[in-house]
């Protein structure tokens, strides 16, 4: 257990919590999608750091690689759906105007 990596993991987790606040409250669907994408990217960092903590970085980097693939494909798939359904109808997915 190395204090440097523990501190790094805590920093990444605090950042993820901050982004989760945006995912929950974000006024538009695209804000939420962006937040989910950023959380996925940070999960890769988290997995790399947890690999150091568990002393098996190779194993966790495999999972991180698979997670990166899934994250990208999920974002693109949701965007395809969004573009097809809501073209030119921003008001249909906006709960409040960004100020």
């Amino acid at each position: 257990m190395d204090i440097v990596y523990v501190v790094s993991v805590v920093v990444v987790l605090v950042g993820m919590l901050a982004v989760l606040k945006r995912v929950i409250s974000g006024p538009t669907l695209l804000d939420r999608l962006l937040g989910v994408n950023v959380i996925g990217t940070k999960t890769i960092v988290l997995l790399a750091l947890i690999g150091f903590l568990a002393d098996r970085p190779g194993f966790f980097l495999d999972i991180a690689l698979a997670y990166a693939l899934i994250n990208f494909i999920a974002t693109i798939a949701v965007l395809r759906h969004f573009e097809a359904r809501f073209r030119g109808r921003a008001s249909a997915v906006t709960e409040e105007e960004p100020s």
Partner: peptide, 19 residues
């Protein structure tokens, strides 16, 4: 992939007409 996803999100936002 990360810049590609960001570009796709920006394009979708602009096409949907977000101000």
């Amino acid at each position: 992939t990360s810049p590609t996803a960001a570009h796709a999100i920006a394009r979708a936002a602009h096409k949907a007409g977000f101000p």
